[in-house]
């Protein structure tokens, strides 16, 4: 049995500890907001937080995550009112939307480290792929979210 805390809820799981966290979240815990895109930590669609740090859950095993506090997009806020989510809505960021859970989780982690990121910071830290090309909206929304969060 492996103990895993996700979005504040404790789970006891009888699963191979080598299983990627992504598939535990999606298939066992039915938290489908975290997405599978590449499986090799390239695209970032599977980004979640371990103790507030952004990780790619497709290359994080259940065993590695076991002692951390896991937060997924579903646990980011109660009423989609986290400043990053609000900025995402105001800037009308998502298109197909598939990568956006990961984008948002990556941005939240960035803003925890840097409350007022420069464009260069955003370029360096947000390496998630968006095939729809929502990057201009993402950039605007990150700055907007930073403003909201500081105030």
């Amino acid at each position: 049995m492996i103990k895993l805390r996700v979005n504040g809820i404790d789970h006891e799981l009888d699963i191979d500890p080598e299983t990627p966290l992504l598939w535990v979240l999606r298939d066992t815990l039915n938290l489908t907001g975290t997405k599978y895109g590449c499986g090799i930590a390239q695209c970032g669609a599977c980004t979640v937080h371990l103790n507030g740090q952004a990780v790619r859950s497709c290359k994080t095993t259940l065993g590695q995550a076991a002692n951390f506090d896991v937060v997924t997009i579903e646990g980011l806020s109660e009423h989609r009112d986290h400043p990053v989510q609000q900025a995402w809505i105001e800037q009308d960021v998502p298109q197909c939307g598939y990568c956006q859970s990961g984008q948002i989780m990556a941005v939240v982690a960035l803003l925890k480290q840097k409350s007022n990121p420069t464009d260069e910071d955003i370029d360096r830290y947000i390496t998630n792929i968006c095939r729809c090309g929502t990057y201009p909206q993402i950039r605007r929304a990150v700055h907007e979210a930073a403003r909201k969060w500081r105030s």
């Binding site: 907001g33 998502p94 859970s101």
Partner: peptide
């Protein structure tokens, strides 16, 4: 006009076919 589908796409509640979960479903 803001897109109607945007709110569901910022909190993980938007459903794609990979998110389908059915009783007894296998993969």
């Amino acid at each position: 006009t803001p897109r109607l589908d945007v709110p569901s796409k910022v909190d993980g509640s938007a459903h794609y076919s990979m998110d389908v979960r059915l009783p007894g479903m296998v993969y």
